[in-house]
Write a protein that binds this DNA or RNA. Structure first.
Length: 552
RNA sequence: GGCCUGUUGGUGAAGUGGUUAAACACACAUGCCUUUCACGCAUGCAUACAUGGGUUCAAAUCCCGUACAGGUCACCA
C-alpha cells in the first residue's frame, strides 16, 4: 500500500488537489508593504478586553499601511460554541467602531474573496491539505485512545521526561500500512497527526515583532492536525487559513508564543511562506498585591460591553488602548492635539513586552479630558444616546428639556480650560439631577460646610430672597450683591480680608455662597452658581430656599 | 518538572555603555489661585533601575547564576 492509498483509505472522497485552492486564493493585489491582519476569535462568548486590544492593533497596523483587516471565526471546537456568538463579536467590534474590510458580517453572511471566513465551513479545504500531507508521508493516523495518551503522560512524568507525543512515545508513527489498514477496517477511531521532522536538540530562532528574537528547541511533537470530528486543530487551521488568506502579520496574545515552533514548522513543511508574528502581552489586573491576567469572569472591566454600559466614549477607550499599545503615543498626542489616532504611526517595536496593568483611573482621566473638549451639543447627543439604551427615564427627561440640558452642559465649557467633571455618560445623571424637577428629591443630608447653624442659614437665605435676588441681574451685579449680603451679615466681602483679619468677621463671602449653593442643590460641588440659578429660575430657587427659612 | 518570556516609583513607562546620576503622563500629598468643585499653577513623591557575581576606564543598559512573576506543555482556541 502506498501513501496515496493510505490517504484515500483515511479520507475517502476528499480531493488532494491543493493547487485548486492555491489558484482560487491568489496573492492579494496590494501596494508594497501593505499589511494584512486578522482578528480570529472563537465564538465562545463576548469579546474580552485583551482581544479588543489585539483587534485594535490589528486594525491599526492594516490601516497604517493601506492593507486589509479581516474577521475570521475560529469555531473548530464545537463543544465550546455559544449561541449567537458571532453576533456578539460583531456587535462588540461595532460598538468600538472597529470596522472590517473582509470577513463575517453576521451569523451567516460575509464579505471578501478569501472566504469562507468561518472555519467550520472550510472543512473541505483543511482535509484537502491533510490528505496531501498524508500522500507526502508527512502525516499519519493515530489510534491511541485518550486513556493511552494519559498513561504515557504519567510514564513521562515519572521518568522526568518531556511530556508529549514524540520520538519513542509516538507509537502510531511506527504502524505499518497493514496494521493501519486492519485497524481502519476494524472501525477503530483515529485522528491525523503531523509527522514532525524536527529534533528537540536543534535550536531555531524566530523573530517576533514585539518580543524580538527568541530561541526555541525545534518542535518534535507529532501534533494532532485533524480531530476525530474531521475538523482541524488551531495550529493546522492557522497555517492553512493565514496562508490562503495571505495574512502578512499574525498579531495575537502571547499565550501562543510557545506554539511558535509548531507553527513555523508547519508553514515550512507545507511550503508556505510564514507570516510575521507579533505576540502581545496580556493586559493584567492587580489583586491582593499580585498581578494576574484580566479575567472575563472575575473582572467586569474585562468585558468590552462594560465600557458601553458605563458610557465611556469609544474614542476615549481607543485613546487609552493606544497609550498602552505605544507609550510614546501619549506624548505625541499631547503635542498634536488637533490630530487623531489615525495620524499616529503605530510601531511594533514600541509595544511593551511585559504585561501592562489595566489602569482604570487613567482611562477615566483620558475620558474626562476627552469629554471636556466636546461641545455641549455633542455631550447632549452622546449622553442621550447612552441613556436611550441604559436609562430610558433619563433619556426622556433629556429629550423634553433639550435646550435646557444643552445650556446646562455648556456651563464652563467651550473655553480654554473647560470644566472637567464627567468621566463617562453614566455618571452625568448623578451630577445634575437637582437641575430637573423630575429628578429632584429633597435629600436628608445637605452638605453644608462652614455655616451649619439653622438660624444663620435661615437668615442668609431670607435676606437673599427678600432683598438681593433679582432674576435680571447680570453676573457682575449678582456677584456684587453677594458681597453686600455678606457684609450686611458680618461676613467679609473678600476672602483676603477675612484671611488677613479673621477676628473681625463671622466668615467670608465664600461661606455665604456655599450656603446658597447647598440649599439650592444639596451639594457642595457644583458648576458655577450664577449660571445654575439662571437656568433654575426664580420659582424653583425660592421654593427650595423657603424650606430653610424659619417662620415660613 | 521541561520550554519560553519578563522584573525601572503606587500605575503606564522613557531610557539600550558615558553631555543635567532616571523624561513624560496618571494617581497621591501639600501649597497657590478661585465665592464651591473642577480647571490651572507650584512643589514633593525611585540615594537608584529584583538580586548576587562578572566584562569595562565607565552599566539600568552587555554576560552568567539566583529569586520572583507570567505564559505554555489537549482530539481548546
Amino acid at each position: 500500500m502506498t501513501n496515496k492509498d493510505l490517504a484515500e483509505l483515511l479520507l475517502p472522497g476528499v480531493s488532494s488537489d491543493i493547487e485548486y485552492y492555491e489558484k482560487k486564493y491568489p496573492e492579494r493585489n496590494l501596494k508594497e508593504g501593505a499589511v494584512v491582519t486578522r482578528f480570529a476569535p472563537s465564538p465562545t462568548g463576548f469579546v474580552h478586553m485583551g482581544s479588543l486590544f489585539a483587534s485594535f492593533i490589528e486594525k491599526k497596523a492594516a490601516n497604517d499601511s493601506d492593507g486589509v483587516f479581516y474577521l475570521r471565526i475560529e469555531d473548530t471546537d464545537q463543544k465550546r460554541e455559544v449561541e449567537n456568538g458571532i453576533t456578539g463579536i460583531i456587535n462588540d467590534l461595532k460598538n468600538f467602531d472597529i470596522t472590517i474590510d473582509e470577513g463575517m458580517t453576521s451569523e451567516n453572511t460575509e464579505i471578501g474573496n478569501y472566504g469562507p471566513y468561518i472555519q467550520s465551513q472550510r472543512k473541505e479545504i483543511y482535509q484537502t491539505y491533510v490528505k496531501h500531507l498524508i500522500e507526502e508521508g508527512l502525516a499519519y493516523p493515530c489510534f491511541c485512545s485518550p486513556e493511552e495518551i494519559e498513561e504515557t503522560r504519567q510514564i513521562q512524568e515519572k521518568r522526568k521526561q518531556r511530556i508529549g507525543y514524540y520520538g519513542r512515545y509516538a507509537k502510531c508513527r511506527r504502524l505499518t500500512m497493514e496494521e493501519i489498514k486492519e485497524k481502519v477496517e476494524n472501525g477503530e477511531p483515529y485522528i491525523i497527526r503531523f509527522k514532525s521532522p524536527g529534533s528537540f536538540d536543534n535550536k531555531i530562532k524566530v523573530n517576533d515583532l514585539v518580543k524580538g528574537e527568541i530561541e526555541f528547541p525545534e518542535n518534535d511533537l507529532d501534533i494532532v492536525i485533524l480531530k476525530s470530528d474531521g475538523l482541524p486543530t488551531y495550529h493546522f487551521a492557522h497555517a492553512i487559513d493565514d496562508h490562503l488568506m495571505h495574512t502578512t502579520h499574525v498579531i495575537r496574545g502571547d499565550e501562543w508564543i510557545s506554539s511558535l515552533p509548531i507553527h513555523v514548522q508547519l508553514f515550512k513543511s507545507l511550503n508556505f511562506k510564514a507570516p510575521k508574528y507579533a505576540h502581545l502581552s496580556p493586559i493584567m489586573k492587580e489583586e491582593d498585591g499580585k498581578k494576574r491576567k484580566l479575567s472575563k469572569r472575575k473582572d467586569p472591566e474585562a468585558a468590552v460591553s462594560f465600557y458601553h454600559e458605563k458610557g465611556i466614549p469609544v474614542p476615549a477607550v481607543k485613546l487609552y488602548l493606544m497609550t498602552i499599545a505605544n507609550t510614546n503615543f501619549e506624548q505625541w498626542y499631547d503635542c498634536n492635539k488637533d490630530k487623531t489616532i489615525d495620524d499616529f504611526k503605530f510601531d511594533f517595536k514600541k509595544v511593551s513586552n511585559s504585561g501592562a496593568l489595566f489602569d482604570v483611573d487613567k482611562l477615566y482621566n483620558i475620558s474626562k479630558n476627552y469629554i471636556s473638549y466636546l461641545k455641549a451639543t455633542e455631550v447632549y447627543d452622546n449622553a442621550l444616546e447612552w441613556a436611550k439604551i441604559y436609562d430610558k427615564d433619563f433619556a426622556n427627561i433629556l429629550e423634553q428639556h433639550k435646550e435646557y440640558a444643552i445650556k446646562l452642559f455648556n456651563i464652563e465649557r467651550e473655553q480654554k480650560k473647560p470644566r472637567k467633571d464627567y468621566s463617562c455618560y453614566s455618571m452625568i445623571k448623578s451630577q445634575i439631577w437637582y437641575m430637573f424637577d423630575e429628578l429632584y428629591i429633597d435629600v436628608k443630608d445637605y452638605e453644608f460646610q462652614t455655616i451649619t447653624d439653622e438660624e444663620e442659614i435661615s437668615k442668609i437665605l431670607n435676606l437673599y430672597v427678600t432683598k438681593y435676588y433679582d432674576e435680571n441681574d447680570d453676573k457682575d451685579t449678582w456677584f456684587n450683591k453677594m458681597k453686600e449680603l455678606a457684609s450686611e451679615l458680618g461676613y467679609a466681602k473678600e476672602v483676603k480680608d477675612y484671611k488677613n483679619n479673621p477676628e473681625a468677621y463671622k466668615g467670608h463671602v465664600g461661606d455665604i455662597s456655599m450656603v446658597l449653593r447647598v440649599a439650592l442643590t444639596s451639594k457642595s460641588m457644583t458648576p458655577d452658581l450664577y449660571e445654575l440659578m439662571l437656568l433654575l429660575g426664580k420659582d424653583r430657587i425660592f421654593s427650595r430656599y423657603n424650606k430653610f427659612i424659619k417662620g415660613n
